[in-house]
Amino acid sequence: MVSAPLVADKAKGSAPVEIAVRDVAVNFGPRLRALSGVNLTIRACEFVALIGASGCGKTTLLNVMAGLVPIAAGSVNVCKTPPRAGRRDICYILARDALLPWRSVLGNVEYGLEVSGLAREERRQRALAYLDRVGLQDYRDFYPSRLSQGMRQRTSLARAFAVARSVYLMDEPFSALDSQTKLILHNQLLDLWESSGATVVFVTHDIGEAITLADRVVVLSRLGTGITDEIEIDLARPRSAEALQADPRYHDLYRRTWTSLRESMK
């Protein structure tokens, strides 16, 4: 297991800015304005959750940070340079697991490392270590079609964190899972992230998920006009997704976020 200091309790205010979104506008075609005047600053090692009404442009904003969507105005910098798809310091996790059906679980985890140019022996060792961390060591030779949805998404997490990039962009990776499986995946993601020291932007429509995982929940306006509210999640780390369910402060934050989300829909 990789031992790294927990980043959560440190003063995040002093950490360098990792992602800077300034007055960004995005148009879909000549008429449709998806985003306008969006500002967002994310510091290194911060875990930020983006929530908002369906169609508010949260996935679009994530895609802007990934360099997948061109911007019409403003500026975006990730690690001081404008993002570009395929950059070697950004990792994007899709809503669907996108596992290669013709590769075993181990082969899939190795794929990201292979693309990153690691030598055969090293990538095998790394892939095995990360499979171990998501509890899939016994399934290394299985093809994805024989795995449950939760196991597939765990394989996808292992593939993503094995490449150890500095920024992780996640687009509702757990939306297809049932609530029990979600809790397991939350714990695994927290474990992987806390030892990675990476910056995470996590798009979700699940308030509980946002509070469980993030340092800060950002609420986007329904009209794509930027941030209507930010909620600091000052729950101590390391967190346990199950234990939080019984924590009154978790429920306070849930109510606070829920109210804020409802306001944003007006």
Partner: peptide, 14 residues
């Protein structure tokens, strides 16, 4: 071809 597979690969830098 599954667009998600292509996108995933591209985003990894393939």
């Amino acid at each position: 071809v599954d667009r998600d597979l292509l996108l995933m690969s591209r985003l990894f830098g393939a």
